[in-house]
């Protein structure tokens, strides 16, 4: 086994010099590193001693430290809203002991296709606060699409608007502790029965994730009693590739059905 040099920085400044070094990786929860190959890793920078567990909220914004685990996130978000999309999604993610290890920052950085975190964050239009080469806040979609941003930077915080939209979350799994073939996140802003705004995000489709704009556009500005939901599914235009033993046609069909049902559920009553 290769000998790994460990670093235990106590401040963000101490992390800085490690960001540019070859073969040195940041270690948050560590599950992603262990899932991948250890080959070529020369150094690991343990982020455990940094203060990356802060949770701040005001009427406008929620900000969470990137070192927060899923379990910590669930606990914190529950204090705002037990039906928050992050609570709904993360309480089913992985398993109890893994929810105590996996961190927000690690997931955003690695973005596994089965993630239960990314759909909600994309739907929330979250910002990722970085330290390093380009120290500032970026929208999460920009972050995940830019390898340049991911390189040589550390995610310190995640930030999103404190919005009280209705939330719906669906994960396509074989058993409860499974890594979803895809997930559907829907946020819906209703004013009485008027749909003022909505965001629909599917993670796990071709291209890793997708906003389902066509359906969003259809819904926006409509009243819930004027919707014709049956058949909406056919318009999602999502593409899937074969996953394990699941065929694209089935995944496309299921995604459609579940989007339809989610909308129906969210717009009911």
């Amino acid at each position: 086994m290769n000998d790994i040099q460990w670093y235990f920085p106590k401040t963000l400044e101490e992390v800085q010099p490690h960001l540019k070094r070859d073969g040195v990786k940041l270690h948050g929860g560590g599950t992603w590193i262990l899932r991948g190959s250890m080959r070529g890793i020369k150094g690991l920078v343990d982020l455990g001693k940094l203060e990356l567990h802060s949770f701040r909220k005001d009427s406008q914004t929620v900000e969470m430290g990137a070192g927060m685990t899923y379990a910590e996130t669930i606990r914190s978000m529950t204090t705002i809203n037990p039906d928050h999309i992050l609570v709904k999604a993360l309480q089913h993610a992985a398993s109890t002991p893994l929810r105590n290890i996996i961190t927000l920052g690690g997931t955003i950085f690695s973005f596994p296709v089965w993630s239960d975190l990314m759909g909600p964050l994309i739907a929330l239009d979250a910002d990722v606060v970085l330290m390093g080469e380009r120290s500032e806040a970026y929208s999460i979609t920009e972050y995940v699409k830019s390898s340049a941003l991911r390189k040589e930077s550390l995610i310190t915080h995640v930030r999103f608007k404190n919005i009280g939209w209705n939330a719906y979350y669906y994960r396509e799994v074989k058993t409860s502790f499974d890594y979803p073939a895809f997930t559907i996140t829907i946020l819906l802003k209703k004013n009485k029965n008027l749909i003022e705004d909505t965001r629909i995000v599917v993670v796990g489709c071709a291209g890793k994730f997708s906003r389902v704009k066509k359906i969003e556009d259809y819904l926006k500005g409509k009243t819930t009693d004027s919707l014709e939901i049956d058949g909406i599914a056919q318009t999602h235009e999502l593409k899937f590739t074969k996953k394990r033993s699941l065929e694209p046609a089935y995944l496309e069909h299921c995604a459609g059905v579940q989007i339809e049902r989610s909308i129906s559920e969210l717009t009911r009553g």
């Binding site: 790994i4 460990w6 270690h27 929860g29 560590g30 599950t31 262990l34 690991l44 343990d46 455990g48 685990t69 379990a71 109890t96 002991p97 893994l98 105590n100 290890i101």
Partner: peptide
């Protein structure tokens, strides 16, 4: 005090 899979934790950490 947190339940974790010890197979997913580096000893060094």
């Amino acid at each position: 005090e947190e339940l974790v899979n010890s197979c997913q934790v580096f000893a060094a950490a």
